[in-house]
């Protein structure tokens, strides 16, 4: 461990805002990159299901 306490870990030796904003934004972007394709896939499957049902009726 390179820090003596949790408060010191959060402070990052005066560089806290820089380090944590960089990590926070990056984490957000990574989550976005996973969530968007998964949501798009679900939406697509639902749309296709509706289309298939419509076509089987007519």
């Amino acid at each position: 461990m390179s820090f003596a306490s949790f408060a010191e870990f959060l402070a990052m030796g005066q560089h806290g805002p820089y380090v944590w904003s960089a990590y926070g934004i990056s984490l957000g972007v990574l989550i976005l990159n996973v969530a968007l394709p998964l949501l798009a896939r679900r939406r697509y499957l639902q749309e296709e299901a509706r289309r298939l049902r419509r076509e089987s009726k007519s």
């Binding site: 461990m1 390179s2 820090f3 870990f9 990052m12 030796g13 005066q14 560089h15 820089y18 380090v19 960089a22 990590y23 990056s26």
Partner: peptide, 25 residues
Amino acid sequence: GLVWGLAFAPPDYQQGNSFRIIYIH
């Protein structure tokens, strides 16, 4: 890698802890 880089890697002798941004940059 995140926990290792953020908490366990030693700080840089010139840049201090801001160097930890390297682990995503």
